[in-house]
Design a protein around this nucleic acid. Structure first.
Length: 493
RNA sequence: CGGGGCGUGGCGCAGUCCGGCAGCGCGCAUCGUUCGGGACGAUGAGGUCCCCGGUUCAAAUCCGGGCGCCCCGACCA
């Protein structure tokens, strides 16, 4: 069969689309900019959810659900919030369709026009803070630590499967605190949760930091983020955590009585990651053979492909394969026996490769004789090893652990290789054009930031966290004005 | 919103310039031979050629209008 996947060096964008299609992760929908997440893609998302949800619970959060619809007036309460989201919300204005007498077909029933239009949530701060105002009266009600798994809609101009779709799935945490300090700590705590998840589960190294004002979440005092570097040298914002100050508390009049019975506004945070992470996962590890998944998130971690030539062999091989499957499952591995009699082994090899199953085991008549299994690791195409059937589960587990680590190490090496420090504007422009992260001095002004973006297409991805890296003062590459320290630039998705 | 491309069996496309039986590859179905890296042969099923209108004996093809999608760019998680 011809190559199902375009080579990355030929056309990275097409490669990405090919992988999404061939790995059966998602498909286009009849509605522009929306996508259908197929079972394989959804299973991947579910494993991400499981890991994240566990981490949220461990840090004291509870899940809840707030509605899809937000009264338009809610959005208007917080000035910056409105400005940020007004240009990309979907509106519900009617509740009914009627037959059009002139043209035929259906039209909105004018009688059913809503008194106040509803916006489909682009994020839920407003509906949530409207309720928090009711629920919070005393310092005894704080902190309030909630999360919700939901869909949101942002009417983007240009979309890309997983990376930017009109509707997407995400998780949004919303917390309320009695003090500024506590809220800031929460913001940082959740940023660390995201960092841990990205690195330990996704095997995706990230830089953590603070956004500049121009990149800040509408309505936030500060936006923290993790940024990853994709294979093509473009950066991807993989998660954000916002310190909202008292902005939403003021907008929704959410106050509490402190221990001295003084009324104070509540301090807030919000934080989220989305199905965009699936896109990031693809662009971090996958290759020209298709999807490559880190074992911890792979829906199927190990697949057994039986090989046989006649009915007797089929019986023997399948019996042995069943036993081995049981052993793998008992060891807590997500294992699958590809028992389909309708496809041939070579076909199955190719398919599991496209779909990114981390470990493949081939079991044929020869293996029955020798007491072996052929083991292949997805991230080492072409390498195959005959291993003993005895202690197979332990061997597979060890291989999965190694692979998880190797994927991270490889991604990190790639990032190191493509992270440079620029000491002149020429050097900066060259580094940005080649792709990758570039550390450079910046004078802190929005004008300079905009000019650099204009001239190079690079944006400031983050300002490093205090104490995270040593910050040496210097001079802005473009203006020569004083800089407090280098910031991280890149062209971004 | 600008630029480009595309709309023809499930998928990918040719055919459109120059009007004349709607084709090819993959996939699908049945049978046979096969089977340790996407097998081969035979037979077969499957189509409002995006929509509306016009020209013509005749339109996938020409003319007019509309719609949709994808890719690239500006804005965004």
């Amino acid at each position: 069969m011809a190559d199902a996947v375009t080579a990355r060096t030929d056309d990275y964008s097409q490669w990405y689309l090919d992988v999404v299609r061939e790995a059966k992760l998602a498909d286009y929908s009849p509605v522009r900019g929306c996508m259908v997440i197929r079972p394989h893609g959804y299973a991947l998302w579910e494993h991400m959810q499981d890991a994240l949800d566990g981490m949220f619970k461990e840090t004291g959060h509870e899940n809840a659900y707030f509605p899809l619809f937000v009264p338009q007036s809610f959005l208007e309460r917080e000035a910056e919030h409105v400005e940020g989201f007004a240009k990309e919300v979907a509106l519900v204005t009617h509740s009914r369709l009627v037959e059009d007498e002139d043209e035929g077909g259906l039209v909105p029933d004018p009688e059913s026009e809503l008194g106040e239009p509803l916006v489909v949530r682009p994020t839920s701060e407003t509906v949530i803070w409207n309720k928090y105002a009711d629920w919070i009266q005393s310092y005894r009600d704080l902190p309030l630590l909630m999360n919700q798994w939901a869909n949101v809609v942002r009417w983007e101009m240009r979309t890309r499967l997983f990376l930017r779709t009109t509707e997407f799935l995400w998780q949004e945490g919303h917390t309320a605190h009695a003090t500024r300090k506590e809220a800031e700590e929460e913001t940082r705590r959740m940023l660390e949760v995201y960092r841990t998840f990205a690195e330990e589960y996704m095997a995706m190294p990230v830089f953590a930091g603070v956004k500049t004002e121009s990149e800040r979440f509408p309505g936030a005092v500060n936006t923290y983020c993790i940024e990853a570097l994709m294979q093509d040298g473009r950066a991807l914002q993989a998660g954000t955590s916002h310190f909202l100050g008292q902005n939403f508390a003021k907008a929704f009049d959410c106050t509490f009585a402190n221990q001295d019975n003084e009324e104070e506004y509540v301090w807030a945070t919000s934080w989220g990651v989305s199905t965009r992470l699936v896109g990031g996962l693809i662009m971090t590890h996958s290759d020209d053979q298709g999807l490559v998944l880190p074992p911890k998130l792979a829906p199927t971690q190990v697949v057994i492909v039986p090989i046989y030539f006649d009915d007797d062999q089929q019986t023997d091989v399948m019996n042995r394969a069943d036993d081995l499957l049981g052993e793998l499952e008992d060891a807590g591995l997500r294992a699958e026996l590809d028992a389909r009699d309708t496809q041939r082994p070579g076909w199955k090899f190719a398919e599991h490769e496209l779909q990114g199953v981390p470990v493949r085991l081939g079991l044929g008549p020869r293996d029955l004789e020798n007491g072996t299994v052929e083991l292949a690791r997805r991230d080492q195409p072409g390498d195959k090893e005959n291993v003993s059937q005895g202690g197979l589960a332990d061997r597979v587990r060890a291989t999965l652990e190694e692979m998880q680590q190797d994927l991270y190490d490889r991604a990190k090496a790639h990032r190191e290789e493509r992270t440079r420090t620029a000491t002149s504007y020429d050097e900066f422009k060259k580094a940005v054009a080649e792709g990758g992260f570039v550390w450079a001095h910046w004078d802190g002004s929005e004008e300079t930031e905009a000019r650099i973006q204009e001239e190079t297409k690079a944006t400031i991805r983050l300002v490093p966290l205090p104490g995270e890296t040593e910050r040496q003062p210097g001079e802005d590459l473009l203006t020569g004005e004083p800089s407090e320290g280098r910031v991280l630039f890149a062209r971004a998705y």
